[in-house]
Write a protein that binds this DNA or RNA. Sequence first.
DNA 1: CTCCTGTCCTGCCGGC
DNA 2: TGCCGGCAGGACAGGA
Length: 275
Amino acid sequence: MPELPEVETVMRGLAPVLNGYKITRLDQRRPDLRIPFPHDFAARLEGKCFLGLRRRGKYILAAIEGGDSLVVHLGMSGSFKILPSGDPVQTGPHDHLILMMENGATVIYNDPRRFGMMFMVATESEENHPAFAAMGPEPLGNGFNGEILACRLKNRSGPVKTALLNQSVIAGIGNIYACEALYMAGISPVRKSSTIAGARAEALAAALKKVLSDAIDSGGSSLRDHKLVNGALGYFQHHFRVYNREGEICPETGDTIKRIVQAGRSTFYCPRKQR
DNA sequence: CTCCTGTCCTGCCGGC
DNA sequence: TGCCGGCAGGACAGGA
């Protein structure tokens, strides 16, 4: 499920109940998600205080008292829910991890498909972990622009859509926002990655920033699994121009939105607007 | 290297 | 109504 905007909204939701507070108890309900939970997971977290949260690509990094960071990836179907202090704690299917905080809040990680993952790294060398060492630039980061994007895309032989999904090219983009940004920039998803330069690259960089920041402002996109930590739905899915709109009419050209498959993933686009 | 396919897992939706 | 195939926001291993 979650791409950059969804991960960002989840992180922002978690921050107020985690930052500066101790974990009083961790209830781990199974040994693994996509990969095993860290060894002695509970022992390494219980009694420790969260120092700060940040996002890198589709990962949340939570610095913990004592020098470790808890790293979380939501996979396709992972979500967090916060039960405020005083609320009854009821758990259900696929609630794999339950954090009880000293402020009384309960934080539950739910993940039906278990494609999510959690691991620990030393906070001071977070960026050396393989997940981050090869990761591309943050599209919402300072200084990201068309020139940087063009540089990342120019040595690739495949289509631009596939390149945008590659986390080592650019961080945080997934299937929805790749489709939406290419539409907004008027670039065909089948266009060769290496031909994105100059004004076209500027348009794509601007479109990525716009669609991602608009989506964050909308609380992300809720297709089935994504929810805010208070259980509310994001609503950016109502702003999709092409994603999941095969057969519908492009509001700009009147043409029909097409669906194709690239690298095993659905791509939606308007053949007339996108060249 | 880079690129594609298959796989992990569960749930949901549409078609018959 | 019920069953079954296909598909889903991601990442990675393995093979070409």
